[in-house]
Nucleic acid binder design. Structure first.
Length: 790
DNA sequence: ATTTTCGAGATTTTT
DNA sequence: TCTCGAAAAT
């Protein structure tokens, strides 16, 4: 096939540019993935580069999958290369070869967030940290921050925990002669990780960066190995990702990266689109022609994103015929909203559309629930991507922990499954065992095997015997059979069967099937070991290996990134859901603009028609009335058609919330601290303000272990810090409102209760009784929270 | 000492 | 809907 056929001039320029550092700024739907895939094929088929010399990195598993599929159809040899993968996937491959440089075995374990949480919990208990004031997430984000801003690999891991000062509390004041100081908690956490040779997602990146930067010969080897580097969604790379990319591309000058700053939706986990923008490439290409959406949809997208202040202006255009106008549907309740979506799909399918033409997108995965109910009722075939993610399910994690314990005998897995199914081994027993193991300097499992007292319990002896016998079993059997053996002999399956927990049993079956699939796919390789399987699988969160099915797809907007569908519904377009109440509460304009970019991503997924839906009711968390999302209001006049019974007064609520946010944004701007001030953070200790960022209302704070952007709310003065973190939060908003004339029957808006009608006025006492949606409320007639409507 | 039960509270986004 | 923790039951 001709690789260059069907490409426009700019795309062709990008595909055939084979030398130097090339940046492609590609708007949504401008053929970004296409350019990448075609360039890959061009390099292989035309230039004659071996696929094993090309590294092509994406962000999500699904994107990597998609890329592989597309490349496979074009590349002549048809050999889909291993180096089309996610960044984390690359790190695993890299570390399997190179991690010995820092004294780890190649079969290191990759642990996920939940394992990390378990370890954090354990450390918190050991350090007697009050779980009421400090959450596990707080601790983990502190640990993650310290990892990102220290030389912990050198200080703790390579030195095996020796020669490093431990800091007693959070007071970072007494770092001497620049020697690294780590909290005891942090050290202990790392120690636990090291015991199991466990790497979390952060470690994968940091270890890779460290090895690449420290060992020149390793760096050189990989630079020679990987002549061509391509990066998709480069705007979502954080600084560590860039370090990996630049280290490997090195002097070769062979970097090709594609991205769109308007689609950066991972700033919350450190993405730095500025690095993309500031990069000085040898060749700069901009793709602005959109091939995906109708002008109606594109206009809405452009209209929304233009409200962002922090962006480089770029308008997408298309030559396509204009299509159906974008619809905003308003339902009277969540159920009605879902019903409407289901019936729209059902009738369009009747008119000839395929189920697989539809996607329903939402901001947060728990929103899928009410949609699913409606789809079930209408017998619409659907698949949920995400939700409770497959590899996060309890039974899947338990099963994998059994496998992991078998090959690693590690404490993390041991803790997880020693009492599943119940072996009457609770907290007390665990504490005793842990103490003994610590004293002997061995793992929990090893201690159990040698501890006479414990082994007197029949159940526990059976457990150690099971693991030992499984060890023999696996020598002659496949991974899936070994797992089956473990689950059967341990009584795990029986327990599920007794609870008649069919869905869990089904999930385990699916896991077995996926393992078989993995074994098949890697048949030719020598390393179909359980260790490798576990390392690979640890990076999967969803059942991404699943075949595409002819069903309606339900997914979060984040998951939908990079995908396209003829018909797209975005549901839950409600203030507090989208934009999320967290983004609102954070009161940082940057966080807020990210929500808007997310909206932009959602809108630009649609090819032919777009439906934005929301509904009335009450927010589950605050109990306040739901209002339509401000993003709906931001869409320009005439670009959108309202369906359903929408009371325009509801937008008063939206307006009110916008005003509130603006007010607090202003209050939040440099009001409290200035450059040079000493501030305290609950997690990072004392710091100094080195920059006030008025652009997005945050502060750059220099802490002992590095700088961090902080929101005003999370910073304290010295006094507040010493008062135990209490802040004086009396705010006086003395806003003058003009006197309101009230009369019965009038429509009013109250920020707390929503929209209502005045049913009674008592002028003598200055009271008004207002009927709100489902309750009446009495208030003073000069209540300044009241807004008149109409 | 361990398991079960029950009620309260929370729920962004990904590797 | 699910998860977590405290109190009750075994």
């Amino acid at each position: 096939m001709n690789i260059l056929k069907g490409l426009n001039d700019r795309q062709r320029e990008a595909v055939t540019a084979i030398d130097g550092n090339i940046r492609v700024t590609a708007g949504a739907g401008s053929g970004k993935t296409r350019v990448l895939a075609h360039r890959y094929a061009f390099l292989v088929n035309e230039v004659g580069i071996s696929p094993s010399n090309i590294l092509c990195m994406t962000f999500t598993n699904k994107a990597a999958q998609e890329m592989k599929k597309r490349i496979a159809t074009m590349v002549s040899q048809g050999n889909v290369n291993d180096f089309v993968c996610t960044i984390h996937g690359f790190c695993v491959k890299f570390l399997r070869k190179e991690i010995y440089h820092i004294g780890y075995p190649t079969n290191f374990a990759v642990v996920d967030e939940e394992d990390g949480k378990d370890m954090a919990k354990q450390v918190m208990t050991e350090f007697k940290i009050d779980k009421k004031t400090t959450t596990v997430d707080d601790v983990l984000s502190g640990i993650s921050f310290q990892k990102g801003n220290s030389t912990y690999i050198e200080d703790l891991i390579i030195s095996r925990g020796q020669n490093v000062k431990t800091q007693a509390a959070d007071n970072a004041d007494d770092a001497e002669n620049g020697q690294p100081v780590y909290t005891g908690l942090f050290k202990r956490y790392i120690e636990l990780q090291m015991k199991s040779f466990a790497l979390d997602y952060d470690d994968l990146i940091y270890f890779t960066v460290y090895i690449l930067q420290t060992f020149a010969d390793v760096r050189k080897h990989w630079q020679e190995e990987l002549n061509y580097i391509m990066v998709d969604e480069a705007q979502d790379c954080n600084s560590h990702d860039w370090q990996i990319i630049t280290a490997i591309s090195g002097d070769n000058h062979n970097l090709f990266f594609v991205g769109d700053p308007d689609q950066c939706i991972y700033e919350w986990r450190g993405a730095r689109p500025q690095l993309f923008i500031d990069f000085k490439p040898d060749l700069d290409i901009v793709l602005a022609e959109n091939y995906r959406s109708t002008p109606n949809i594109l206009d809405v997208a452009n209209s929304i994103i233009s409200h962002n202040r922090m962006r480089i202006k770029k308008d997408l255009f298309t030559e396509k015929q204009s299509g159906k106008i974008v619809v905003h549907y308003h339902g009277e309740s969540e159920d009605k909203e879902a019903e409407w979506i289901a019936s729209q799909i059902a009738s369009m399918v009747e008119a000839g559309a395929q189920y697989s033409d539809f996607a329903i997108l939402y901001r947060a995965s728990h929103l899928s629930r009410f949609i699913e109910q409606a789809l079930l009722k209408k017998h619409v075939q659907y698949t949920v991507w995400g939700g409770v993610r497959f590899f996060d399910r309890k039974e899947i994690k338990d099963a994998l922990a059994y496998l992991r314990l078998l090959v690693y005998r590690d404490d993390i897995s041991f803790r997880r499954i020693i009492n599943i199914p119940s072996r009457k081994f609770g907290r007390q027993s665990m504490e005793k065992l842990a103490e003994a193991a610590e004293a002997h300097g061995i793992s929990l499992f090893a201690e159990l095997e040698t501890n006479d007292g414990m082994l007197r319990r029949r159940e526990l002896r059976k457990f150690t015997e099971l693991i030992d016998s499984a060890d023999k079993y696996r020598e002659t059997h496949s991974i899936s059979d070994t797992l089956d053996y473990l689950l059967r002999e341990s009584g795990y399956k029986d327990e599920l069967r007794l609870d008649s927990d069919q869905s869990r049993i089904d999930n385990l079956q699916e896991l077995t099937a996926s393992i078989k699939y993995y074994e098949d796919a890697n048949r030719n390789e020598e390393n179909v070991s359980i260790e490798n399987y576990l390392q690979d699988i640890a990076l999967y969160t969803n059942a991404d290996y699943k075949q595409d099915t002819p069903t309606v797809k339900l997914m979060t907007i984040h998951q939908a990134k990079g995908l396209e569908f003829p018909y797209v519904f975005v549901c839950g377009m409600t203030e507090g859901i989208f934009p999320s109440h967290r983004a609102i509460r954070e009161r940082r304009e940057a966080a807020f603009e990210e929500e808007r970019r997310l909206m932009y991503v959602a809108v630009t997924r649609a090819e032919r028609a777009l439906f934005l839906t929301e509904s009335e009711g009450y927010n589950y968390n605050t109990g306040t009335q739901k209002y339509p999302s401000r993003f709906l209001q931001e869409i320009g006049d005439g670009l959108i058609k309202v369906e359903g019974n929408l009371d325009p007064a509801l937008f008063l609520g939206t307006k009110y919330l916008i005003k509130e946010l603006d007010k607090s944004l202003k209050q939040n701007t440099g009001a409290r601290f200035k450059k040079g001030d000493t501030v305290y953070s609950k997690f990072f200790g004392r710091g100094e303000i080195i920059d006030v960022n008025t652009e997005n209302n945050s502060y750059k704070v220099q802490f002992l272990r590095g700088t961090r952007d902080m929101v005003e709310d999370k910073l304290m003065t010295k006094e507040e810090h010493e008062n135990g973190g209490r802040k004086d939060s009396s705010s006086n908003d003395e806003e003058k409102t003009e006197q309101i004339e009230l009369h019965t029957g009038q429509k009013v808006f109250h920020p707390k209760y929503g929209i209502g009608h005045i049913i009674k006025i008592d002028n003598e006492y200055g009271r008004a009784v207002i009927q709100f949606r489902d309750k009446t409320h009495e208030t003073s007639t000069d209540d300044k929270d009241l807004t008149l409507f109409g």
